[in-house]
Design a protein around this nucleic acid. Structure first.
Ligand code: MN
Ligand code: MN
Ligand code: ZN
Ligand code: ZN
Lengths: 148, 148
DNA sequence: AAGCCTCTTGCGATCAGTTGCGACTGGAGA
DNA sequence: TCTCCAGTCGCAACTGATCGCAAGAGGCTT
């Protein structure tokens, strides 16, 4: 999970509030969980952690907040090749896009930012006259430790 | 949805049988639906169509068969940016990988094969010592008709 | 500080996808 | 052609995600 060099705590909350979105105790709890995360979390993990901050948080509020953050472009939703189960994973969206690689054997997730990926997207925008808002490149395969 | 120039009907079925996988009436029904599809289908659409071929097909059999085909590398699973709902879409995997672009306004799905995408994957394999088995690049944004 | 409007929430019902189980069957071998 | 059993199936119970609704609470206005 990529981290910015210097992160102001509560930044996510400020970004939302700055867009005129109402701040609630439940949202603050969920946002703090996402902000402090050191790995990709799924909805049930976010719920569990958020409840330690505010015990009233309900499952549906987590899903609704994740949906809000997605629509606002503040988080990205990942499949991670559905290595375990059908669920989705979430991570904060930072300045630089990155690729996710999931090892089909050991389950390790590797992240990688690539210049070629950036130019591929530029090329897509030019060649297909498509304005890209969000992009997701995920690959499944075998990591250096697991390939033979 | 990309189509091969000449497709032998029943090819998917032969591919499975050739790998020693048992062929059943239900599987034949589901395979034919996937083979004849002219667009990306979700599980409930596949179930509905398969039942018109064999009325006994159950929901769980569709999911189990999709899972089998995924594991065999014969179909790919797509999110299509979850333009509508959380579900997944399926398409046959053919020789050439392609990118999916989903328009967030009109919902149109555009497919695109790219030389740069192919070399990005090669570069990934080299730089990360990762052996790619399956890859998925999906982008959301605005198509030529919808961007202003 | 209080009122008010609107957005948000928890709850329960519902829907979609998964799993365990006993019955069934494809197809290899006799 | 018949037998046989591992693999597959339908079913029903279960789990995770969604939705509609009435109650609750941000935060602007006064
Ligand atoms: Mn990541
Ligand atoms: Mn997905
Ligand atoms: Zn590995
Ligand atoms: Zn469009």
């Amino acid at each position: 999970m990529p981290f910015p060099q210097t992160e102001i705590p509560g930044r996510l909350q400020k970004q939302l509030a700055g867009r005129g979105i109402r701040m609630t105790a439940q949202r603050r709890a969920i946002l703090s969980v996402i902000e402090m995360a050191t790995k990709h979390l799924d909805a049930s993990q976010i719920l569990r952690k958020a409840r330690r901050v505010d015990a009233t948080v309900d499952r549906s509020t987590v899903y609704r907040t994740l949906d809000l953050l997605k629509r606002q472009g503040l988080i990205d939703e990942l499949d991670l090749m559905h290595i375990k189960g059908e669920g989705h994973y979430y991570e904060r969206r930072l300045d630089r896009d990155h690729i996710h690689m999931a090892c089909l054997r050991c389950g390790k997730i590797t992240e990688f930012a690539s210049k070629t990926f950036d130019s591929l997207k530029k090329q897509l925008e030019r060649d297909c006259h498509f304005h890209i808002v969000v992009s997701r490149l995920e690959v499944g395969g075998y990591c250096s430790g697991c390939r033979r």
